[in-house]
């Protein structure tokens, strides 16, 4: 059953993201609207986007506390994903070992950062005002994923060999027996829920930031005529 769900979610996730990108990219940018000062060259734009994606530079200018909380959460998430790659890769490459210890710390910083973001959303009147149930729910979901993950590490350690065999089976499209661990199944289900929600929600910001019009356009309206089919 879990196996069926996993495949279904994977298909929906990939289809959802792809179709969203198709919707985004098929809608044109009729006018030059970079937020200036803006770079004049493509390499300048790459640097600007890298600054947004890696360092969250606009957010840094906007709100230092939020920047810190948000950045720690995202970096923790990345480290955890990298750490998890040892469950998907066989044989395990050398570089994955680098993330084993730090990935555990990241599990804690992830939960702390999420708790900060949750409390902040609840207590700052301006942010609370614009928050919906779903905004809180997704923070809780991420926290639960983190908590079930750390539970497996520190409380009830399931049989890793079984889990890895199961995951590798999923990836190679020849599913193995489901591991006998409630925490693991819960952890995986919650993660699948996150993937399922992703393409239909604000979590799409992870993809959208790369094509944001005001950040990706060059400031060259005069140098080169910018023209789209509907706005001739």
């Amino acid at each position: 059953m879990l196996t069926v769900i996993a495949y279904a979610v994977a298909v929906i996730f990939v289809w959802g993201i792809l179709s969203r990108f198709i919707i985004w990219l098929s809608s044109p940018n009729p006018l030059k609207i970079p937020t200036t000062p803006a770079p004049k060259t493509f390499s300048g734009v790459v640097a600007r986007i890298a600054g947004e994606v890696v360092l969250f530079q606009s957010l840094f200018k906007a709100d230092k506390k939020l920047w810190l909380g948000g950045w720690i959460f995202h970096v923790s998430f990345l480290l955890i994903v990298l750490r998890h790659s040892r469950y998907f890769l066989y044989p395990v490459p050398e570089w994955v070992m680098v993330f084993q210890t730090i990935g555990i710390y990241a599990g804690f910083t992830l939960i702390l950062a999420l708790a900060f973001l949750f409390i902040r959303r609840l207590t700052i009147d301006r942010v609370n005002y614009v928050s919906s149930f779903m905004d809180y729910a997704v923070l809780l979901l991420l926290m639960l994923i983190g908590i079930t993950g750390l539970t497996m590490k520190f409380i009830g350690r399931p049989n890793l060999i079984d889990i890895k065999a199961y995951i590798l089976g999923l990836f190679s499209l020849s599913p193995e027996a489901m591991p006998d661990s409630t925490v693991f199944i819960l952890h995986l289900l919650l993660f699948l829920l996150l993937l399922l929600y992703f393409p239909f929600s604000k979590l799409l910001h992870a993809g959208g930031v790369f094509i944001s019009t005001t950040r990706t356009q060059t400031d060259t309206p005069v140098e080169k005529r910018h023209i789209t089919p509907w706005a001739k």
């Binding site: 969203r20 044109p28 940018n29 948000g70 614009v130 910001h205 706005a231």
Partner: peptide, 24 residues
């Protein structure tokens, strides 16, 4: 308009309501 302006389509989809703009 969603089909004519990518900026609009993207804005509708990707805001996480982080609150960075709320005091600006």
């Amino acid at each position: 308009l969603l089909k004519k302006y990518r900026s609009l389509q993207l804005s509708m989809d990707i805001c996480v309501k982080c609150g960075a703009c709320t005091d600006k």
